[in-house]
Design a binder for these strands. Sequence first.
DNA 1: TTGTATGCAAACATTTTGCAGCGTG
DNA 2: CACGCTGCAAAATGTTTGCATACAA
Lengths: 146, 146
Amino acid sequence: MTDQTDLRLTPQRMAVLDVLRAAHDHPTAAEVYERVRRSSPRIGSATVYRTLALLVSTGQALELNLGGGAAARYDANVGRHDHAVCEGCGRAVDLDHPVPDGMMAEIARRSGFAITGYDLQFRGICPDCQAHGAGPARLEGPARPQ
Amino acid sequence: MTDQTDLRLTPQRMAVLDVLRAAHDHPTAAEVYERVRRSSPRIGSATVYRTLALLVSTGQALELNLGGGAAARYDANVGRHDHAVCEGCGRAVDLDHPVPDGMMAEIARRSGFAITGYDLQFRGICPDCQAHGAGPARLEGPARPQ
DNA sequence: TTGTATGCAAACATTTTGCAGCGTG
DNA sequence: CACGCTGCAAAATGTTTGCATACAA
């Protein structure tokens, strides 16, 4: 079914990929939709969802889950990198700080898993929110570092 | 505003916490609901959702986001730990393998964030799925253990 | 031409909310 | 015996699917 059949390069798919590559803010599917509409007003949201899923499954985009009830976010930067998510404003910034290789091997050994990768995201308050006083994006809770 | 008003210990809340503490499989809200019903048939799903949110916000449970379109999962093990998620069967197992302190400090320095914590989850194939051939939980991808 | 991709709208799945009555502290 | 909590059902999100048609290759 999902055979690597044909795969066509349609204007809609290009538009979605363009938007994603131009974005530096890890947009949600809804945000991608909104932006794509500016250049392709007749595109449907289903097409955006389908295209994002396609891009993810073909390795041209990453899907981020930043927790909470938040919707999935997408990132055209498919190189290895991590994220820091601001608990004040919800913004996510890219980081590149790989976990030591030995650690992956250690996890594999201890868990018996064949590890194929990992997702690492830091939580904290971004410089802006530290300055203006942490703006509330979540319910309230000044998250306590357990 | 951060009024820690009253907070009552009701049978429903105990039931939810009991289920969560007895569970070792990171159940979704729907699964918790299903299990709680066995002992409290008259409980409503809204109560389960409200209670899970309450437990999370009071630090008595963790919420996990294992990506995909998957629903949030809950964990009564609130001690610091990570997870390995099987791409075959979707199961998540606990791991305890802290990131070195120095790394947190380094991230903080480079990003300007005040880091309060992090979420780390490994992806891979669990021992069972390695044996029986990776069972399909996602779209299809016969993840090949190279 | 051929079958994939699209757009629309309805279907779905999950989580949240409104409200009247219940029951804990 | 006050006020928070509950159950029910409806509403709000976020995402997927069915189908007839448009269009890339």
